[in-house]
Nucleic acid binder design. Structure first.
Lengths: 251, 251
DNA sequence: CGGCGTTTTGACAGGCTTCAAGGGCCGTGG
DNA sequence: CCACGGCCCTTGAAGCCTGTCAAAACGCCG
């Protein structure tokens, strides 16, 4: 279910990391690259549906997503679930777990997931030897906060239709930036139940809202294939354009 | 409305910072203290009701709250407002603005506010010379994210009564940790409208929910004075105990 | 005392949840 | 090859929760 590669340095070295080619990530200096390579101690493969970080547990590792989709979430005692955010390639997860006493949320794989594993014990080395990388980590934390802020606005002040449009557009843009999908089509690996839990709505109402959205012809969503046909119209429904460009570091 | 102290080093030096005595903050080494003292270039006084950081603007400074209450918020075009979080003494604001191109949210003073001002230009010095302080900044960012995560759960999955109880208890605990208030009573500087905008509810419904909460006798809120009389009952309504203790660094 | 911002209340409409049930798709096993 | 079960999507109906509208009471300050 959740297995480490097990072969020290038997995984793809950072020099050959496919994510490095992404235009949305900054380039590393040779020194940074060398450090990150030895900072990464393993590669983790997680099956879809498995939670590899759980609320209440202490995590000795920090992860970045190499490939696949996941999501951060919290559960209430009676089973209510709130999805906080989705994790895509190049996103970092588990930072809270390494800084705080224990995880305050869980992370589940939405598709088979490959993660780069970094030991908490070497995090201080990173901070003391590579301030630029430390800066990047802070940047990633600030960016995550920014995404949640926007999500918070959705749940608090946007209507069901607006927030649905906003989330879908946001995920679409993030996926596109990562080179996932083509011809305006992205494979969304989640179900309407996931969407409902992210939007803070019931499954039934999510379905009906989705229907209304599809009726505008701005988007289609058949099977798992999501496509945007009229981005301006979608952005108009969402109430705001999501096209925020931030040059993005990578650890 | 918004005035800097104007007298370089004419403000209280960090050695005499009243916040240093707080048990919830970690202690500085003499070297760290010396650095932070020269890192702080001014003290800013903001009137209640004034926004000193605005969405869309670029910020050259980073701030920590020395005294007073503020709140981070976002506005939609038609005037809808969502309060993202409250800022209390020892909290940091504006980090996003120094890392990103521009602010993605605004910050307004709820009471007269005193802020420590740090220049973005020296932030890199901090990262390269004092990794421990860099670590603290990351820690603060992670803590802020944790607070928003919890807030997100409230808006998405908690009932009106639960989320109201949760927010009030949370603010109460935060204020208490900072030594604000006594005898189980804290002065809350916000109105029901603020509460409504934080909870993602209408003013009317916030008022009625509040009424229901007060009817339980677990809390009282007269004028600006908020008091908790039955913390267990309040936590039970909130659905979860907010008593999370995290040793906390200070910059 | 008057004015303004805040709090409180009532009535009503509509959004959203819940309950319930049917349909489609797909992998498994007979 | 077909039946079955499980998961996901879809739809309708009923009723509660929440927002909106409207107005009055309250408290503070000039």
């Amino acid at each position: 279910m959740i297995v480490g590669n097990g072969r020290p340095n038997g995984f793809t070295p950072c020099e050959q990391c496919p994510l490095r080619a992404l235009p949305c990530l900054r380039e590393f200096t040779p020194e940074e690259l060398a450090f990150v390579r030895q900072f990464k101690i393993d590669e983790l493969h997680v099956d879809a549906g498995a939670s590899f970080l759980r609320e209440g547990e202490r995590s000795e590792h920090l992860y970045t997503v190499l490939s696949g989709w996941g999501f951060r979430y919290k559960m209430l005692d009676d089973g209510r679930r709130q999805i906080l955010n989705f994790a895509l390639p190049a996103d970092m997860v588990g930072l809270q777990g390494t800084l705080m006493h224990e995880m305050e949320h869980s992370v589940e794989a939405l598709t088979p997931l490959t993660l780069c594993v970094f030991p908490r014990s070497k995090l201080y080395d990173l901070y003391s030897q590579f301030p630029t990388l430390a800066f990047d980590i802070t940047w990633l934390a600030a960016r995550e906060e920014q995404l949640i802020d926007e999500h918070l606005v959705s749940l608090g002040r946007r209507t069901a239709l607006e927030r649905t449009a906003y989330l879908l557009l946001n995920l679409y843009v993030r996926a596109q930036e990562l080179g996932l999908g083509r011809d305006g089509t992205v494979q969304f690996p989640f179900t309407q139940q996931h969407l409902a839990d992210a939007l803070g709505m019931s499954l039934v109402h999510t379905n009906k809202t989705l229907k209304r959205l599809l009726a505008t012809k701005a988007v289609t969503w058949k099977g798992r294939a999501f496509a945007v046909h009229d981005r301006l119209a979608l952005a108009a429904i969402a109430g705001e354009d999501v096209t925020k460009k931030n040059p993005r570091p990578f650890i």
